[in-house]
Amino acid sequence: MKLSRRQAQVNLRYLRALIRRFRITLVLSAALFLLGPLFYCFRYVGPDGTGITFGEGLHHVYFLMYGQPSLPYVRDWLIELVNVVIPPVGIALVADGVVRFAYLFFARHKNDKEWIEVVTETMKGHVVVCGAGRVGYRVVAQLREMGRDVVVVEKREDAAFVSALRDEQVPLLIDDTRSPLCLPRTNVKHASAIVCATDDDLANLNIALDARRLNPDIRVVIRLFDDDLSGKVRDTFKAEALSSSSLAAPAMALAAMDPRIIHSFHLGKHLMVVSQFDAREGLPGLNIASVRDRFGALTLSLVRGGEEKLNPPGDEVIHAGDVVTFQASYPEYRRLRAFTCESEPPTWSHQPATDVPPGQRKAG
């Protein structure tokens, strides 16, 4: 129900954007099919001396656009002038305006740059993700899970996750990011952030510079492969520059030392780790607050009887058999493992299967 309501709101915003873009065409079309028949109603007098109804005037205007007038010819200079003007004006309105309006409305999920431009006009505070590779796709999935509007830019039609993004109805622009019209088509001026996640450091920097030029307040996140370059960009460009190697190195090093660590990151000079504990030795009988005070470990979740409780309160007592997820600095983590009589990491043969859900994965 929530997804349907959100989709209905998106469709309504899209329709409003289309009406705003084609407002002149729609007004002229309405004038043609309203004022034209009224003109014939008041001006036209047939050979037998009788007038016509509004319906007959509308019928005449419609077929006159295709060179097939439905009313008999009369000698009236003004009617003759209108009969000559309506066909080219009407065809121009229908061909260039109404047809394009209908196409963009009913073909919303086609790969069309104009459609993308109209869709992004309905967005404000969205995130632009450049690159439809593995990293870009995961970023998009995470952002959509958090309820954010996302626009993706990819230069290659055959990129790895292009078809998957289209199946999920994510607005996807196939265009070269070096094109001066590429980022404006994503409405980057009203975006809250841009993620540069292509596999080319220079392209990511160019995208970031163009985005800052169009929107000085936009948050910029850049994926870079060069560690030295990422540090310089972070300090001078005031952007969040992330190096793939620097992100992967701590996780790989800790996985080699202790496979029970499921996540790691740096907080300043401190190496923080996340790990799950089976409440067997030491932990049963302690409450959450006492573990924090004694070992500096924050409790992220507690699983008991198949039910997971996020951020359990400090007076929650840990029972035998509970699975508790702690976050702590690496030295504090080692002390907590020693307290639970698990100071030595398990061998690989004792590790759980990788397809076990994270909330039910148990430490060795």
Rank of each mutant, 00 (worst) to 15 (best):
V195T: 13
R166F: 05
S163I: 06
D217E: 14
I174D: 09
C182E: 12
N206D: 12
T177L: 08
D210V: 07
D175I: 12
L172T: 04
K189R: 13
N187Q: 11
D175Y: 15
D175H: 15
R219S: 14
D200I: 01
Q169D: 15
A197H: 09
L202W: 02
D201L: 04
R185Y: 05
L181R: 08
R166M: 02
C182P: 11
A191Q: 03
D217R: 08
S192W: 02
V220M: 11
K189A: 12
N206R: 12
V220N: 09
R219C: 06
D201R: 02
L172I: 01
S163H: 12
P216T: 02
R212T: 13
T177H: 03
I218L: 08
C182D: 14
A191C: 04
V170I: 14
N206F: 12
L209G: 03
V220R: 09
D210E: 15
S163Y: 07
T186P: 06
P180D: 15
A203W: 01
D217L: 10
D167H: 09
R166W: 05
I174K: 05
L183D: 05
E168R: 15
V188L: 12
R213S: 08
D210G: 12
S163C: 01
V188I: 15
D217I: 07
E168T: 06
Q169H: 15
A211M: 08
D200K: 00
R178F: 07
I218K: 10
A208H: 02
D175L: 10
L202D: 09
D175N: 14
L173C: 07
A208P: 01
D200P: 00
S192M: 08
D175V: 10
L165D: 01
S163V: 09
C182F: 14
L209P: 01
I218T: 07
A191H: 02
S163P: 00
D217M: 11
L183E: 05
C196T: 08
A203T: 14
T177G: 05
N215H: 03
V188F: 11
T198M: 13
L181P: 00
P216R: 03
D210K: 14
I218A: 11
R213M: 08
K189E: 12
